[in-house]
Design a protein around this nucleic acid. Structure first.
Lengths: 241, 241
DNA sequence: TCAAGTTGTCTAGTATCATAGACAACTTGA
DNA sequence: TCAAGTTGTCTATGATACTAGACAACTTGA
């Protein structure tokens, strides 16, 4: 027999992703025993060795645990988190009874290209602070964001964010009491290797790509950002009056 | 040299994903020439043949086009789709310089489940008209929609739509002069076999799933629908005041 | 105790992935 | 016209992925 998807994704990986999805959506509950390796092999029409490799990958990530002679058991428990627009990430997550977290990946300097300059009302080439961060609800990554701020208006913003772990608090540090969303663009893509790693998501899962700009109460642009959300963990509600 | 990520995703696929992302986020604009195969190979630290395979995969999906002796060029560009209170498919597509088309797949009767009843302000079990249609810009499918209308208020709506090929015209036929969007919910999923066939999309590509309800000028619900957009062909623009 | 069912570990063969180099066919600009 | 740069196609080689079969080690329940 020979499968030949030629999708560029290894069979064992497809099986692993399938099982992980089963865990994520509750088909396999935490602590429960998975079907036997033979049975999994049959459902995916794949050799048992391929299933073993998939299970090994999941075991290495701590999602399952194999017990010789007995079976393979689910270690993880599934988490799901809604997200609404027009509010603060921290407030949205907090309202859902979860603890919002922000984790800095990298902060650095940058210069404005045409698009960012237009969004922020700056000149092309203007100095920027670029902040890349993961945002989590409890311990589940929700999105990765790249945020750009004017380096003149928000000097040292990278270090500030590293301390406060929140964009609202960062802006408050510079005297911005309130702000709101000026524009939002949404599309979708497939998680690439970088997304997958940062969102702790299997490769090939959909991500929602959101470009947004926030302005202060005088409609002066403050920050513009591009975020990539794990689509299976979020649903956007658009409220047009 | 030997890469050995062991991520279960083939190198050529990682390269293809990287290039696609570059196209999606505008680093490579539509019509523009990509870097040469050798240059791409160097940036990804990969053999030229691996790059060629990645480009072949993108070419097969119509995202790029190779010209011998000259270079490889970006084919795609996304349709800008503003999500305003006034959202008409035909107007949006027309504004982009494309010809809007609607193609009926199937029309039939249905009864309201809890969600649809709530959206349309009907009782559970109320008779409905269900219209499934593909919407295209020129000859490119943009989305498939399932639309529900009250069968009492819009009798024979299926046949009307089959003639006019437009939801705006259909509503006009029943005396609705104007309407607007009451609610929009967006998430993303992976194209299944049905989506793939109707959207002329390869299996496994991302789709944007939009649930929306339109109301008349007195805020009375008219239609509720679920649409599945080919994510790689559209970009939603959200304008919150 | 024992049989059935489970995971763990070998060996082996075939197909695909990725690299490497060479050259042909073609386009572009000087 | 020509040189430089591009994509297209061929051969070849090693590493990895997948399949296939067999058997060991262990758990469970009758």
């Amino acid at each position: 027999m020979s499968m030949q998807e030629s999708s560029g994704v290894a069979l064992w990986r497809q099986v692993a992703d399938g099982i992980e999805r089963g865990i994520a959506d509750g088909r396999f509950a935490a602590g429960e025993k998975l079907p036997g390796e033979m049975e999994i092999a049959e459902t995916y029409r794949v050799n048992r060795h391929t299933v073993r490799r998939a299970l090994a990958a999941l075991a290495e990530r701590g999602l399952v645990r194999a017990e010789r002679g007995s079976g393979t058991y689910v270690e993880a428990q599934r988490l799901a988190y809604p997200l609404r627009s027009r509010t603060r990430f921290s407030e949205i997550v907090g309202a859902g009874g979860h603890e919002p977290r922000g984790q800095l990946i990298e902060a650095g300097e940058d210069t404005a290209n045409r698009e960012i300059a237009r969004e922020l009302g700056l000149k092309i080439g203007a100095p920027l602070i670029r902040i890349e961060a993961v945002r989590l609800a409890d311990r589940t990554p929700i999105c990765v964001s790249t945020t750009w701020l004017s380096a003149e208006r928000f000097p040292d913003a990278g270090n500030v964010f590293a301390n406060v772990h929140s964009m609202t608090k960062l802006l408050g540090h510079y005297g911005v009491k309130d702000y709101h969303r000026a524009s939002t663009r949404i599309t979708a893509a497939i998680a690439d290797a970088t997304d997958a790693a940062r969102l702790d998501l299997p490769l090939g899962r959909p991500v929602l790509v959101v470009d947004a700009t926030d302005v202060d109460m005088l409609d002066q642009p403050l920050v513009t950002k591009r975020s990539r959300f794990a689509a299976e963990r979020v649903e956007f509600l658009v409220e047009n009056g």
